[in-house]
Design a protein around this nucleic acid. Structure first.
Lengths: 331, 331
DNA sequence: AATTAAAATGTAAGCACTTACATTATGCAG
DNA sequence: CTGCATAATGTAAGTGCTTACATTTTAATT
């Protein structure tokens, strides 16, 4: 069933039907109602492909992330999807995994589907690999990057100030006398390196020297973390505090340390990152740095709609994190 | 840029270009390469809307769930998206929230976008409201329902046997002497009622009587759960074990009970549901019933592709759950 | 070289809309 | 009752692709 059928039954031309469909003003109330009635009784649904072909948009946005089953991405995607919907857009979800070639491939696929824009959540790209490919994409549609930094035309970055957040908290710990702060992280994304730099700079600025044994890269796996901590302790190094780039790492570290006989936070305070549900669930509940995902993501969508409406939009917006105090560290 | 431009530069007709685009066999290797080269140098991307208009599909599937930021849905959506992609489909994500009217509205929106099918994850619909609307949708595209039950043409249900899982574990607890099993749940979805029935039937089959004080409906909120448990204890009722319809409820219950001075699992064993990351993270780690989301979701996608390829597909597939033993209950 | 089947390519008619432009209807002033 | 601006409607030309059918080319066979 198409616009012709409706036009027939309603005794009007297809142009009029189309006008009704598009809420055009130049239709008399009477015919509009007549057309709507016919649509209703015939159960007509306009064909989005034909509209897309004409209007060159189907109001869809590609949303790329590494893995939605991860709490952080899940939250981000949730907020993005909701905000987009409020603006009349649908979200095509695309979980790319870590592989860069896959990411490129999926971006191209989305481009072929003629999405109106791309939102990248937490790109793990290295600058060099990024630019050429993103540049090509950004030449046809706007690209919004959440927690990633790329400086190119038609590219907009929404960042949480993770560097500062880690920096501030490491400094705070140092000033309170916790000088052997263990830093746990798992990936070398842009965001990951920001945090790591925050840690390193803080240590330096506190007049301490960086101890590479206290910077541990581990996968998000309880056993791996146990082992890493065992090795550390075997070396005779006992961290005076733990800071992790993600809640899950902090929690697994806490479990491991508790097992080793340490009491959290009395012996070793711990701070996580992301302020996820995990932080609230753990025992003792985890003090965590909130990276304001919600804020980040709504800002991303607002930015996008502003770009669409031709407004002048800053190419980089930074949002502060904030510490959420729970039981594993009370400042 | 379109197919005509490519045809021009390559010195062939648009039909040939189209054939190259569709990997049609009837093109000589020489011209195919020539066309591909032109596409490459001109940076041509075929227009998905035009293809959609012709082929009446854009290979997109609507995926509806209540809220992706919830760990269970996040996992489900993740697996679904991945499986779909492996079969060449994109997923349009749609988080509906709890409201039924919203769900209907969003389904219609997806239908207007001409998705090839709908996958509903954990519908919260009541039968009566469901049928008429779903029936209309299923009359034009297949509808796959994960953990929901609807018997209609062109509708396929993939269920985890939650009834049995709860039943078995309650029976097991009873046989071990834990006769006052507290059951915590939060929503009255289909899945929710299955579990509740499992609990009730098990109690009855163990020759006990159902104590309504031991069936508590609470939101996923630590304070609410604390309060609910306080009230229970005030009545002088101490549960001998706790079973929850979701890990998070179990964990919050554990926190509350620990606070009240009970030791888990020595005094009160606890079993969660979903076997989410939360279960692994809690202290003590939570024994949880795994509802096999991954399995459920890949089966859903396989079912869908089978439907597309015209195979005869069962309208209901049930998958067993399994208990994952951790520290809060060792059978 | 003529014949012919198969392979390669081209032509043109959809697919279901939007919209610029043309035409007709309406209502109001003179 | 005519004239005319304005509102309402219609006509037709895109939008970029697919594909049935027609035509041409190729190569194998006689």
């Amino acid at each position: 069933m198409n616009i012709y059928d409706i036009a027939d039954k309603a005794g009007v031309s297809i142009a009029t039907v189309s006008r009704v469909l598009n809420n055009s003003t130049n239709v008399s109330q009477k015919t509009r109602q007549k057309v709507l009635d016919v649509m209703e009784t015939l159960g007509y649904t306009p064909n989005a492909f034909a509209r897309g072909l004409n209007l060159n948009t189907m109001k869809m946005i590609g949303v790329l992330c590494t893995d939605v089953s991860d709490v952080f991405y899940a939250k981000a995607v949730s907020v993005i999807e909701n905000s987009l919907r409020q603006h009349g857009f649908d979200a095509i979800l695309c979980c790319t995994g870590d592989n860069i070639e896959d990411k490129k491939k999926y971006m191209n696929l989305l481009l072929e589907k003629r999405v109106d824009a791309l939102i990248l959540v937490g790109s793990t790209f290295k600058e060099k690999l990024d630019n050429s490919h993103i540049e090509k994409i950004a030449s046809s549609i706007p690209v919004i990057i959440i927690n990633g930094l790329i400086t190119l035309p038609n590219t907009y970055c929404i960042l949480s100030d993770e560097f500062q957040a880690i920096y501030d908290n490491v400094v705070r710990l140092c000033h309170k006398g916790y000088e052997n702060v263990l830093y746990l992280y798992d990936v070398d994304t842009f965001s990951g390196s920001q945090k790591l730099n925050g840690y390193k700079n803080a240590i330096k600025d506190c007049g301490l020297t960086i101890n590479n044994d206290l910077i541990i890269k581990v996968p998000k796996d309880l056993n791996d973390i146990k082992e890493a901590l065992s090795n550390l302790l075997k070396k005779g190094i006992v961290p005076s505090a733990v800071l992790a780039s993600e809640d899950i790492l902090a929690i697994f570290a806490m479990k491991s340390l508790t097992e080793k006989g340490y009491t959290i936070p009395k012996d070793i305070p711990i701070i996580g990152f992301n302020n996820s549900l995990l932080a609230e669930c753990s025992t003792p509940s985890l003090t965590s740095i909130d990276n304001m995902v919600g804020n980040l993501c709504t800002t991303a969508v607002t930015t996008l709609t502003n770009v669409f409406s031709g407004e002048d939009v800053p190419h980089k917006i930074t949002i502060s994190c904030k510490l959420v105090e729970r039981d594993t560290f009370i400042p």
